[in-house]
Design a protein around this nucleic acid. Structure first.
Length: 708
DNA sequence: GGCATGTGTATTTTT
DNA sequence: TACACATGCC
């Protein structure tokens, strides 16, 4: 096999790709060919006769893994590279646990729940326990999940997490503890795992006698991308995987760490050589992506960081064009300018595909989306609210999850409450009745009780249906029919007595047939329940289309949970794929991507940095890195927009607005590296240097009156 | 106990 | 604004 492509790498890249034995840390700045290096490393290993299925490639998204494997496939036989184990930590954990799960007390039929499922489960427990009684504000369900997840992923004690990251919840620690204990118990009883459990069980797998060796031994080489955004638990997993082998390569950039809210820590990179003695460190500093002026501005943003970073990027891509700082009258002016620029570049020969608009928070693009639509500029949005979060999709999935794992109470809860007249109390009663069905009329031997497996609530539903409120009776019967058909079971009511019912097993219909049965049951409920049922029914059609590619129901549900469609584009089928479209993305979702033209919007203080993050210095520093990540996505043209005026809809009298300040990261020194433009008719007073706006000083003066 | 209506509040980023 | 939570009626 020819390795001539090695000549195209720079010396540092080649050193990383051809590295021999032992651990390797690659510190790779933005645009330094990180993806290329990893892809080449995979191809190189395969060329060195490493079996592809003995290579594990851990990435941040499934998309990233697919891209690297695709690129490796251009350098070595593609049928070999496609056998590489690639994916996110969570997806790989899922795959391993389906194989080895029994060793850590896990039924291989477990189902996975996402964050909002976890939140719902916490909420149920919270009301069961009555913890939130009294006038005290108890943390809401989403906060509970955040606390839980942070504690698990950082592997620190609850008390410390509360003190450090959720101080306003510290007084509720006893209630939180109680909920978490029940939560753990409930998940175990119901064979349900949350995201964090996937990692925890993988870690447990590594530590288990014999199985741990089997799992670690399965992979000759472990490669990890975006290492700066891994957390303590993930680091623990890697150590567990490498107890008997030393071959591990991690790639990361401490200047691009932007996931501390998921308990990611740069410490993982810094400590890597300690955890893996004998580590060789390779640094990639030559940027192939951006022009020199864009890079100069990006570097200048990072220069003010309180932390010193390990490298400074340089580029040979000279250009006369500086990045552009556009000061806009207000948000709608910003939308106008961005659209104008996009069209201008499109007409200049840069297709929409090679342009992106980046922003801090998903809702920041709302107004722009309206403007784009009215100008007929097609776009796909990444990040933010997902298809899978929609109530009707969750409803549909709940049916499937019950079929897959009848012990999943959360899904039962959801489904049962769709019936008229059934609220939380009735749902709970029905679930309990299904879990503890009356004993069969012919008792037979009464000694085997302990040995018999738990009765499946689904079986109870068919053979011993519990009573339901009168209003629900009709639909409940339909529900039983739908479920039984999905299971390939026919129920024949005996003419003499309602019980025992005769149950006949046949073959289960295929997944698509099951979804169709469920949809037919659900459609009338959906129309009844929701405002705009037509849109929702279309979504359900989309769901059916996605399902068409799957044979395994479990695989379908799990994939949807671990790798949900990230943009509207993922849902659209092939006709759209040909079309040229603009990318709108949160900065987080833009990680690892690049575009010829990048438009950053809302570079105002309070947006970047988000005012949510101003509590501590670490938070502020992460916001700085976010801006850096956003800027370094640009290859040839970078526009940064600062709207000056923000209107507030809340106060409805007058045109209430506040003046925003330019992002504090765009200091004079940084601005000097930009070309400055103004958009819209900016009033005289607003053309003053923004520093002269004094609103904040007044606030500060006020605050001093009541702060200590 | 379910459900409709009213009130208040917090409001990012994602596997 | 949208969502969680409280209240009061059926």
């Amino acid at each position: 096999m020819s390795l001539s492509w090695l000549d195209e790498l720079n010396p540092a890249q080649r050193e990383a790709v051809t590295h021999g034995e032992g651990p390797l840390l690659v510190v790779a700045g933005a645009g330094t060919g990180k993806t290329k290096t990893l892809a080449c490393r995979v191809a190189y290993l395969i060329a060195q006769d490493v079996s592809p299925e003995r290579i594990l490639l851990l990435t941040f998204t499934r998309r990233a893994a697919a891209e690297m494997i695709r690129r490796a496939g251009q350098l070595c036989p593609a049928e070999a590279s496609s056998k590489v184990w690639g994916g996110t930590f969570h997806a790989v954990a899922n795959r391993l646990l389906r194989i080895y799960g029994r060793a850590v007390n896990l039924s291989p039929e477990f189902t996975v729940m996402d964050q909002s499922d976890a939140a719902d489960m916490m909420n149920l427990i919270r009301s069961d326990l009555g913890v939130a009684k009294g006038d005290r504000r108890f943390p809401r369900k989403t906060t509970l999940v955040k606390i839980h997840s942070h504690t698990v992923n950082a592997q620190t004690h609850l008390g410390d997490v509360l003190d450090k990251h959720f101080p306003w919840c510290a007084d509720d620690i006893e209630g939180i503890k109680a909920i978490f204990e029940q939560y753990t118990l409930g998940k175990r009883e119901q064979s349900v795992l949350d995201y964090d459990d996937l990692l925890l069980h993988w870690s447990a797998l590594c530590a288990a006698p014999r199985v741990g060796e089997a799992v670690g031994g399965r992979f000759e080489h472990v490669l990890v991308d975006e290492y700066q955004d891994t957390n303590a638990l993930q680091a623990e997993i890697l150590q567990g995987l490498r107890t008997n082998r030393k071959e591990i390569m991690v790639v990361g950039d401490d200047a691009q760490s932007i996931y501390s809210f998921r308990a990611a820590t740069v410490q993982n990179i810094l400590d890597f050589p300690k955890h893996f003695p004998g580590t060789r460190v390779v640094t990639l500093e030559e940027n192939y992506r951006s022009t020199t002026p864009i890079l100069a501005a990006s570097n200048a943003v990072m220069e003010q960081a309180s932390q010193r970073y390990t490298k400074e990027l340089w580029s040979n891509r000279g250009s006369e064009q500086k990045p552009v700082l556009v000061t806009c009258l207000d948000e709608s002016e910003q939308s106008h300018v961005v659209c104008d620029q996009i069209i201008e570049h499109l007409e200049g020969g840069t297709p929409l595909m090679h342009q992106a608009v980046l922003f801090r928070a998903s809702y920041h693009s709302a107004q722009l989306e309206v403007e784009l639509s009215s100008r007929n500029i097609p776009f796909h949005k990444y990040g933010g609210l997902k298809f899978i979060e929609a109530a009707h999709i969750k409803d549909m999935l709940a049916f499937l999850r019950i079929l897959e794992n009848p012990f999943d109470q959360l899904s039962w809860f959801r489904v049962l409450q769709l019936l008229p007249g059934v609220g939380p109390k009735s749902a709970r009663r029905i679930i309990d009745a299904l879990a503890n069905p009356p004993p069969p009329p012919t008792p037979g031997k009464d000694d085997g009780e302990d040995a018999s497996p738990r009765a499946s609530p689904l079986a109870s539903l068919f053979t011993a249906p519990p009573a339901v409120p009168p209003a629900a009776r009709e639909l409940f019967t339909e529900l039983r029919q739908a479920f039984s058909r999905c299971c390939g079971v026919t129920i024949e009511a005996s003419s003499k007595s309602p019980r025992p019912l005769k149950v006949q097993r046949a073959k289960e219909p295929p997944l698509s047939g099951q979804i169709e049965l469920i949809r037919k049951f659900y459609e009338p409920i959906c129309k009844e329940r929701y405002e705009n049922p037509l849109v929702r029914l279309r979504d359900i059609e989309q769901l059916e289309q996605i399902a068409a590619a799957y044979r395994s129901r479990n695989r379908f549900i799990t994939d949807l949970t671990l790798d949900p469609p990230t943009s509207t584009a993922d849902l659209a089928q092939s006709p759209f794929l040909e079309e040229d479209f603009l990318v709108l993305s949160t900065i987080h979702s833009a990680k690892g991507c690049e575009w010829t033209v990048v438009h950053i919007i809302h570079a105002a203080d309070g947006m970047i940095p988000s005012d949510m993050a101003l509590g501590d210095e670490a938070g502020l520093e992460e916001e700085r890195r976010l801006l850096y990540v956003a800027m370094t996505r640009a290859k040839d043209h970078l526009y940064v927009h600062v709207p000056l005026r923000y209107y507030h809809r809340k106060q409805r009298f007058g045109d209430s607005h506040t003046y925003a300040q330019r992002s504090r990261f765009l200091t004079d020194r940084v601005q000097a590296l930009f070309e400055k433009r103004t958009a819209g008719t900016v009033d005289e007073d607003m053309q003053l240097p923004v520093d002269s706006v004094v609103k904040w000083d007044v606030d500060e003066r006020l605050n001093r009156l009541w702060r200590d």
